[in-house]
């Protein structure tokens, strides 16, 4: 069984955000949101001796994901290859997983009322294609591969060249997006974008927020029913009158 991972080479990334656009196009991501983002780190130092770099973020498909147990409906799950996925049929858009992700990799897509995030382009992988962001990167800064395959470029980068995970002592859940970069660039990345402790939303809150929706729906349905009955009565009445 493959174990998929993404390696991002900070020394190659030029910050063009082509990956973000390719992903938006592939997955119809609404403006204001992204499944993969590029942010600048730094700038530190004083002119002209400066250090800066880029942090490319996306779902990390963690070994021990905090989003999976946070999901109240079982919509978020980890598949056999380690890819963390969202089953849209089960997702109720409550956002518990968004709060639970230490990397800010998830968002609620208001257009469809479901949670969305990177799935390593699972459907493209099934067709033998690379993830859209990898295929489009002009700098070969993103390498996708199977860590069970020692001949893969990803394996080489992770196990031979020291690409590392973005983890802290508080948040160590085995992310499968790795970063290769000079120590000063790693340092900047951690200073600006270290993972945050997962936030939890009490299950009661989820159900009550959901309940609200049901209440609105119920009230709405009742009103609609009454309206239909009213107009029907009117039209029936008219008919009777015409008769």
């Amino acid at each position: 069984m493959p174990r998929f991972a993404m390696v991002i080479d900070q020394e190659r990334c030029v910050g063009c955000q082509s990956c973000t656009v390719a992903c938006k196009s592939e997955w119809d991501v609404p403006n204001g949101f992204a499944r993969t983002r590029v942010r600048q780190t730094g700038v530190v130092g004083s002119f002209p001796k400066l250090t800066t770099s880029f942090y490319v973020s996306q779902c990390n498909h963690c070994d021990r994901p905090t989003c999976v147990p946070a999901c109240p409906t079982g919509a978020t799950y980890q598949d056999k290859t380690g890819i963390v996925r969202v089953n849209r049929d089960l997702c109720i858009g409550c956002g518990a997983c968004v709060a639970a992700c230490p990397y800010g990799a998830r968002y609620v897509n208001a257009k469809i009322g479901k949670v969305d995030k990177c799935d390593f382009c699972a459907s493209r992988l099934e067709n033998g294609l690379q993830p859209a962001c990898v295929a489009t990167c002009p700098a070969h800064a993103k390498v996708f591969g199977n860590l069970e395959d020692s001949s893969s470029e990803a394996f080489q980068l992770v196990y031979r060249q020291g690409a590392h995970r973005v983890e802290t002592t508080q948040v160590a859940i085995g992310p499968n997006v790795y970063y290769a970069g000079k120590p000063e660039h790693t340092e900047l990345l951690m200073a600006g974008f270290a993972p945050q402790l997962p936030r939890t939303i009490a299950p009661g809150k989820i159900w009550s927020s959901l309940l609200n929706k049901f209440v609105f729906l119920a009230v709405g349905a009742t009103f609609l029913g009454q309206a239909v009955a009213f107009f029907r009565q009117l039209s029936v009445g008219e008919k009777q009158f015409e008769d």
Binding site: V14, G15, C16, Q17, T20, V21, K24, S25, N31, G32
Partner: peptide, 18 residues
């Protein structure tokens, strides 16, 4: 900027978003 070309792309929805 790497995401824009001259004055041609600023009105493009995706690039404008970036």
């Amino acid at each position: 900027a790497p995401m824009h070309s001259f004055s041609r792309s600023e009105n493009n929805s995706w690039l404008n978003d970036l």
